Amino acid sequence: MTARLTSPDGMLQHAPYHHVAVATGSTHVHVAGQVGQVGNEPVAADDLAAQVAQALRNTATGLAGAGASFSDVVRLTFYVARWTPDRIETLMAGVQSVADEVGLPMPMPPASLIGVEVLFEPDVLVEVEATAVLP
């Protein structure tokens, strides 16, 4: 593991993610925005939890293709279309439903959730980006 995750005293505690990642290594892996789509199949329209789960599966596949895993991730970014704060439980349900399957530690690595009006296709509700560091 090249990343040490922490949430120092004085920062919001009990968040679903760590606030700080300290990484050692020289190889950086950047996984572009992954969506809740399996291959060329359409996304599960209007199902944020299902799209989040599949986007994280796709992110895990991208990481594995570079020889990395979620234990090497130092940053996650979630872009969510038509975001409203009342959707956080649905988003987190999608995360939690797949965390063990893909090896996503809970709390997660440092993460940001950015609400956007629309993503690249109208039915796409979420994109997930990841940054990892390898030795």
Rank of each mutant, 00 (worst) to 15 (best):
A49E: 04
V98A: 03
E101T: 14
A81Y: 00
N40D: 15
M92L: 14
P85N: 14
V80H: 01
D100M: 07
Q34S: 14
A53D: 08
L48E: 06
G62A: 08
A55E: 04
D100H: 10
D100R: 14
P109F: 01
G62P: 07
F78Y: 15
A81T: 11
A53Y: 03
A49C: 09
G103K: 03
V74T: 12
G39R: 08
G65A: 06
L56K: 02
V80K: 01
E89T: 11
S69N: 04
G67W: 04
D86S: 15
P42H: 10
L63E: 06
D86T: 14
W83A: 14
V38F: 13
Q96T: 00
V95A: 03
G94L: 10
A44D: 09
R57C: 11
D72G: 10
V95K: 07
D72L: 03
A99D: 11
N58W: 08
A81F: 02
F70V: 06
R87K: 15
A44M: 10
D86G: 07
P110E: 07
F70D: 00
T90E: 15
V102R: 10
T90D: 08
V74F: 05
P109N: 02
A53N: 10
R87Y: 02
V52Y: 10
R87I: 04
G36V: 02
E41D: 15
N58D: 15
A53I: 08
A55I: 06
D72H: 15
G103Q: 03
V98P: 05
A93H: 07
M108A: 11
P109K: 02
V98M: 03
V80L: 12
P109A: 01
D100N: 08
A55F: 11
D100L: 09
A99E: 11
E89R: 11
E41L: 14
F70L: 05
A111Y: 07
P85A: 13
G94N: 08
Q96E: 11
S97G: 15
D72W: 00
G36A: 13
V52E: 12
V35I: 14
A55G: 09
A111H: 11
P105V: 07
R75K: 12
L91W: 05
D86C: 03
F78A: 06
A64Y: 00
A50I: 03
P42F: 04
Q37A: 13
L76W: 07
V52A: 06
I88G: 01
Q34F: 07
V74R: 14
D100Y: 04
A45E: 14
P107A: 06
L56Q: 02
A45N: 04
A93N: 06
Y79N: 13
P42R: 12
G67R: 05
Q54P: 05
V102D: 07
S112Q: 12
P105H: 05
A111L: 10
D46K: 12
D47Y: 09
D100V: 11
D46R: 12
M92H: 06
V74G: 11
M106C: 01
L76H: 04
L91K: 01
P42V: 02
V52H: 10
N40A: 13
S71C: 04
G103I: 07
Y79L: 14
G36D: 02
G65T: 09
A50T: 08
A45L: 03
L104H: 02
S112D: 08
D100I: 00
A49D: 10
E89N: 07
A50G: 06
